[in-house]
């Protein structure tokens, strides 16, 4: 009788047990005592196999960090004055170290700048203009989690889950490439490789390669299709498909550090197209000419639209 129900529901108890979905005691109910000992040892063996097969990048990174610390050690003759000074600085160091350690790491870019850097696990981040990434180094090892304002393209190393928190939702992946753009009025996630889970409010989206979602102001999330291999901004171009002009103007402000006077135009017009991130004049022409909007510099990096 017990065997019957076992076949229906818990057929694959070994898989469940290894994934910690059922307990040791539960497993004992299915197999002989001898088998239990064997599986328990196998489990440990598999753990060891995993640990020894894992890539060694992290170890190498730690060694490099240690070496760069050691470099500073030089031999100096000590006298009493020195000793006091050193003792004082050691105390200071410890205090500042404790303080520092709990502080978040912040990486940001200014108007018109981009930055590429590696995170502690080797994941790669391209940060677009006027964007900020914040994470905690100490918590990183247990939990790959960071927060983003602005726009960034991620190439995530495989491993534990990797979460990006934004004001418009959180994005969780395992190992993949994706782009996030987030501002007060616009939220967009595009998956370039692998799979990405987007949670925004009560909505959950699972994006496959070439899919994306976006949200304009308070509207609902809508799906996007995308055929490029990388976001265009990486090569110095911002491109848009059917977005309110407001979003594009905000981006121009971030890329060039200018300010627009928008009082005389309708910002809700829909724009499709792209602009160059290097030359302001070309960018202005390619955005506003097709829309029939005139622009005039009024000095001090201010531009009037009419």
């Amino acid at each position: 009788m017990g065997k019957e129900s076992l076949n229906k529901e818990e057929n694959y108890f070994l898989a469940k047990w290894l994934a910690n979905e059922i307990t040791d005691d539960n497993l004992k109910g299915h197999i002989s005592a001898e088998d239990f000992v064997a599986y328990k040892k196998m489990q440990k063996g598999i753990d060891v196999f995993e640990a020894l097969e894992a890539p060694m990048d992290e170890s190498f990174l730690k060694i490099k960090n240690q070496l760069s610390k050691n470099k500073k050690g030089k031999i100096i003759q000590l006298n009493a004055k020195w000793i006091t000074a050193i003792a004082a600085s050691v105390v200071l160091l410890i205090v500042s170290y404790v303080g520092f350690n709990n502080r978040d790491t912040v990486i940001n870019t200014d108007f018109g700048k981009q930055k590429t850097f590696a995170l502690l696990d080797g994941s790669e981040v391209n940060l677009n203009a006027k964007s900020t990434i914040t994470y905690n180094k100490n918590k990183w090892e247990g939990k790959r989690e960071l927060s983003l304002k602005g726009e960034a393209f991620f190439k995530v190393k495989k491993g534990s889950t990797f979460t990006v928190n934004t004001t418009s939702g959180s994005i969780t992946v395992v190992g993949t490439q994706f782009n996030i753009k987030v501002s007060d009025t616009y939220f967009e996630v595009i998956c370039y490789e692998g799979k990405v889970e987007v949670i925004s409010g009560s909505e959950i989206f699972l994006l496959q390669q070439g899919e994306g979602v976006r949200k304009i102001e308070a509207n609902n999330l809508e799906k996007l299709k995308q055929t490029l291999k990388n976001p265009t901004w990486l090569t110095g171009e911002s491109s848009y498909h059917k977005v309110p002009l407001k979003v594009v103007i905000n981006e121009l402000e971030q890329q060039f550090g200018v300010e627009f006077d928008r009082a005389l135009i309708d910002e809700s017009m829909i724009y499709t197209g792209s602009f160059d991130n290097k030359d302001l004049n070309i960018a202005l022409a390619s955005v506003f000419k097709p829309m029939g909007i005139n622009y005039k510099s009024t000095g001090n990096n201010k531009i009037e639209l009419r």
Binding site: Y12, F13, L14, A15, K16, L18, A38, Y39, M42
Partner: peptide
Amino acid sequence: IAVEKRMHNALKSMR
């Protein structure tokens, strides 16, 4: 379920 089945059988055959 198919994943669990493969995993289960993998462990069994390793055992």
